[in-house]
């Protein structure tokens, strides 16, 4: 039980820092909004095209925001050598991973709600199949946060980590992009039955990513 309590402790720490620094609120979420706006320009504000592409564009915006959220999650550990503090805290590596990934997931949820609202309004999308949307979003977000956190610590403390992180994370989360887009498409098209295989894929990916991160995080945090 202390494993989960430690995870909550770490998640609480990260979220408290975000609440006070407001980086997520004032930078990452507006960034998501700008991306949504840019896509509309790219497609020449063609309503039908935007409407069709909305699920993909939404998840592309979320994916880009993941990079910022993960970068931020590990930037706060670089400052004042907090990474050493975390290492010496005696907390289990797995619980630190779960905590940090959970904090990223919470931030992403917030972002998805706001960016999703923007997409609905700006791209003229009518929401259907709320249950499928919610399940897909939860599974996708957990997968994204877990994968991002694994690669965040993998690149953490290295030189050029800011440019390395996107190269590592984006190819690895392509299954999430695919699954989330397809299940959103199916739900919005009014055929939620077609979405469930993709939700299963998202869930499997999330479970694997969380498992891999829980095992690998401790050794990665240690200094070799």
């Amino acid at each position: 039980m202390s494993f989960l309590r430690d995870a909550l402790l770490v998640a609480g720490k990260d979220l408290r820092i975000e609440r006070r620094s407001r980086v997520a609120l004032q930078q990452i979420i507006p960034f998501g909004g700008v991306v949504v706006m840019l896509f509309a320009f790219a497609l020449d504000s063609d309503r039908t095209l935007l409407h069709q592409a909305a699920p993909g564009l939404f998840w592309a915006a979320v994916l880009l925001a993941v990079l910022l959220a993960v970068g931020r999650s590990f930037a706060i550990e670089e400052a004042n050598r907090a990474r050493d503090g975390l290492r010496l805290s005696g907390l289990d590596g797995g619980s630190i991973f779960l905590g940090k990934a959970a904090a990223v997931a919470v931030e992403l949820f917030l972002l998805e709600v706001i960016v999703g609202a923007a997409v609905v309004v700006l791209y003229d999308v009518s929401v259907r199949g709320a249950v499928v949307l919610l399940c897909a979003a939860v599974a996708a977000t957990v997968g994204l946060a877990a994968t991002g956190t694994v690669y965040g610590v993998l690149a953490g403390g290295l030189r050029a980590r800011e440019t390395l992180l996107p190269l590592l994370v984006l190819p690895a989360v392509t299954p999430v992009m695919l699954g989330a887009t397809r299940s959103f498409q199916a739900a919005l098209d009014g055929t939620p039955g077609d979405a469930w295989p993709w939700v299963q894929l998202l869930t499997a990916f999330a479970v694997l990513a969380v498992a891999a991160g829980t095992v690998a995080f401790g050794p990665l945090l240690e200094e070799a």
């Binding site: 993998l154 690149a155 290295l158 030189r159 390395l164 190269l167 070799a224």
Partner: peptide, 19 residues
Amino acid sequence: ALRRTGTTADERGKRSAIA
């Protein structure tokens, strides 16, 4: 790219092996 980030051999070995 991860292998070329210039850290100690042990650190590189560990990170790249997991990647």
